[in-house]
Simulated scan of single mutants.
Amino acid sequence: MATPGTCTHFLAVFALISALLIGFYGAGSGVTWPVVFLTAVTGLGLLWLRRRDGRTERRVCVLVLGDLGRSPRMQYHALSLSKHGYNVTFVGFLDTKPHQEVLREEKIKLVPVAEVKGVRVGPKILTYVTKVILQCLQLLYVLLRMETQSHILMQNPPGLPGIAVACLVCVLRGSRFVIDWHNYGYTIMALSHGGTHPVVRLAKWYEHFFGPLASRNLCVTNAMKDDLQKNWGIKATTLYDCPPSIFRETPLKLQHRLFMRLANKYPQFQSRGCEDDKQVERSVFSECDLCEEAVTLRAERPALLLSSTSWTEDEDFSVLLKALEDYEGFIKAGASLPSLVCVITGNSLPCTVTPKL
């Protein structure tokens, strides 16, 4: 049986959709714009009735227009809020599973959204515009159908069209909007299209216009805090990334099992020499006495350097490659430095191991 609140919600959405349809298709049929205006006001009024009550103060929506499993900072936010007694609605793409702590937490509810592609025919601008429109409708549907939240915490970038939609929902439902600034969306777009491209200029205007509308702002560094204040007029709080207690040192036995699995696939992890001893299982980093099942790290092991590939174009991966060249130069000049095994992983690049220096 539908509750009065649910009925009010659907009536409000119906009124707003009706206003849009009347506006688009009713102009030539004698329907006047005052009718459109009144229909829209009715929808807004019904949504206003569903504004915050006392129960919403312990509910927060954490919104990511990206893969939740590859958004560690937003997972930390969700976990931290849940441990402080908040019921968290975690919205985003579920291409990769979030951490088990997030999945096990009873106060965190995952709400998956599908990645919108847009129309795949015609010019690229048509694809982009249709993608933005469809994503707006998708987010409105998801955010308006959930329980009213006291706050919506959103990661930026990506912020188009999420910031505008979240602002609208917060106004309609009396929620407070918080943006966690990781970067600027328009600067990332400029790497592909150039700073003078009309889409990039529109994206910059969009962030400048909607960004200051947030109730609170977080950022990842003091440098970004200063830039937000100086160039955007946004007062933000620096919240450094800090790994939660779910991150612990991996036990030696588990490390060894991982190294042996990698050794079966990549020669850089395979031990060289002393292979006649059948009682000892070795990788280049560790060895296990099979009789006593005791694992130790090898004294002559190389250093392990692990890095993911760039998720966005603004992360210049050539910096690491240049550093490796400099490192090799120091070794050739006689510096006493360990060999390196470099593991580069990522969604767009298979696991690759460079030769030891």
Results as ranks from 00 to 15, higher is better:
Val169Glu: 08
Arg201Thr: 04
Cys167Pro: 01
Leu103Lys: 06
Gly329Pro: 01
Pro244Glu: 05
Ala166Glu: 02
Lys253Trp: 08
Ala263Leu: 07
Lys253Leu: 10
Glu101Val: 07
Arg201Ala: 04
Tyr327Ile: 01
Pro355Arg: 14
Arg51Tyr: 11
Gly66Thr: 07
Gly195Ala: 10
Arg73Trp: 01
Asp180Ala: 11
Ala114Arg: 12
Val169Ile: 15
Pro161Val: 05
Val64His: 02
Arg58His: 13
Lys253Ala: 13
Ser215Val: 01
Val91Leu: 05
Pro72Ala: 07
Leu213Asp: 01
Leu21Gly: 13
Ile331Lys: 14
Gly69Val: 05
Ile188Pro: 00
Met154Gly: 08
Leu65Lys: 02
Val116Cys: 10
Arg120Gln: 15
Gly122Met: 10
Gln155Ser: 15
Gly211Lys: 00
Ile344Cys: 08
Ile234Trp: 04
Val62Gly: 02
Ile125Arg: 10
Arg301His: 12
Leu79Lys: 00
Thr196Tyr: 04
Arg216Asn: 07
Trp232Asn: 09
Gln270Asp: 03
Gly185Leu: 05
Gln268Ala: 10
Glu292Asp: 13
Asp67Pro: 03
Ser318Glu: 11
Lys235Ile: 09
Ala27Gln: 14
Leu218Lys: 00
Ala114Asn: 13
Leu202Ala: 15
Lys131Leu: 14
Arg52Pro: 05
Leu258Val: 11
Gln135Trp: 08
Lys265Tyr: 03
Lys117Gly: 00
Thr56Tyr: 03
Leu172Ile: 09
Ala114Cys: 10
Phe14Tyr: 09
Gly23Met: 04
Trp311Phe: 12
Leu213His: 06
Phe24Tyr: 10
Val64Met: 07
Lys230Gly: 05
Thr6Phe: 13
Leu139Thr: 04
Thr42Leu: 15
Tyr266Ala: 02
Val199Asn: 02
Ser348Asn: 14
Phe93Asp: 03
